[in-house]
Amino acid sequence: LQAFIKTLTGKTFTVEMEPSDTIENLKAKIQDKEGIPPDQQRLIFAGKQLEDGRTLSDYNIQKESTLHLVL
């Protein structure tokens, strides 16, 4: 599935991932794409901060969901 990552500066980019991917995997993909170390990334979806060990499906993240990236 493709999801949108929106930063506080208003920049939006897309990442490809599977519902079974962990938040940790997602942070690694963001690092590959944007060069931001995972330990500096905080991802917010539906008002909740996402925990590394959980999966996208745990948070009911669907295709074309928008996640907010806070540094």
Results as ranks from 00 to 15, higher is better:
residue 36 I to S: 05
residue 46 A to D: 14
residue 48 K to H: 11
residue 12 T to W: 09
residue 30 I to W: 01
residue 59 Y to I: 06
residue 6 K to H: 14
residue 41 Q to M: 13
residue 41 Q to E: 00
residue 60 N to H: 09
residue 8 L to K: 11
residue 60 N to D: 09
residue 25 N to P: 00
residue 7 T to H: 07
residue 69 L to R: 00
residue 66 T to I: 15
residue 53 G to P: 06
residue 69 L to P: 00
residue 4 F to E: 07
residue 28 A to T: 10
residue 52 D to N: 11
residue 68 H to R: 06
residue 1 L to A: 06
residue 71 L to T: 10
residue 71 L to F: 09
residue 66 T to K: 07
residue 36 I to K: 02
residue 49 Q to C: 10
residue 7 T to N: 05
residue 47 G to E: 04
residue 5 I to V: 08
residue 3 A to D: 02
residue 30 I to C: 01
residue 56 L to C: 03
residue 46 A to C: 09
residue 43 L to C: 01
residue 38 P to G: 08
residue 2 Q to I: 15
residue 21 D to S: 08
residue 43 L to W: 03
residue 57 S to H: 10
residue 54 R to A: 09
residue 32 D to E: 15
residue 31 Q to L: 10
residue 38 P to R: 13
residue 69 L to K: 00
residue 29 K to V: 07
residue 17 M to Y: 14
residue 60 N to P: 04
residue 58 D to N: 04
residue 29 K to R: 10
residue 42 R to S: 11
residue 49 Q to N: 11
residue 33 K to A: 11
residue 61 I to G: 04
residue 28 A to N: 12
residue 58 D to R: 02
residue 31 Q to H: 14
residue 6 K to D: 04
residue 1 L to G: 06
residue 2 Q to H: 12
residue 6 K to F: 09
residue 4 F to T: 14
residue 1 L to F: 15
residue 40 Q to H: 12
residue 54 R to Y: 14
residue 30 I to A: 01
residue 64 E to T: 10
residue 16 E to Y: 13
residue 67 L to E: 01
residue 8 L to N: 15
residue 3 A to R: 02
residue 53 G to T: 09
residue 23 I to F: 02
residue 10 G to L: 03
residue 69 L to I: 11
residue 21 D to C: 04
residue 68 H to G: 03
residue 17 M to V: 15
residue 6 K to G: 03
residue 69 L to F: 05
residue 29 K to I: 09
residue 5 I to N: 02
residue 42 R to T: 15
residue 70 V to A: 06
residue 49 Q to W: 13
residue 61 I to Q: 04
residue 55 T to P: 07
residue 58 D to G: 04
residue 45 F to V: 04
residue 34 E to K: 08
residue 37 P to S: 09
residue 53 G to D: 11
residue 38 P to E: 09
residue 25 N to A: 13
residue 10 G to E: 03
residue 11 K to P: 04
residue 34 E to Y: 14
residue 51 E to T: 05
residue 12 T to K: 06
residue 29 K to H: 06
residue 63 K to C: 07
residue 68 H to T: 13
residue 26 L to S: 00
residue 22 T to R: 06
residue 44 I to L: 11
residue 8 L to P: 15
residue 39 D to R: 10
residue 21 D to M: 10
residue 24 E to T: 07
residue 55 T to V: 08
residue 25 N to I: 14
residue 3 A to M: 15
residue 22 T to Q: 03
residue 36 I to G: 02
residue 59 Y to S: 02
residue 5 I to P: 01
residue 51 E to D: 09
residue 37 P to E: 07
residue 50 L to I: 04
residue 19 P to H: 09
residue 29 K to G: 02
residue 21 D to P: 02
residue 56 L to H: 01
residue 10 G to M: 04
residue 39 D to K: 10
residue 26 L to A: 01
residue 44 I to F: 15
residue 35 G to R: 04
residue 47 G to Q: 03
residue 55 T to A: 07
residue 53 G to M: 08
residue 38 P to Q: 13
residue 61 I to D: 04
residue 4 F to R: 11
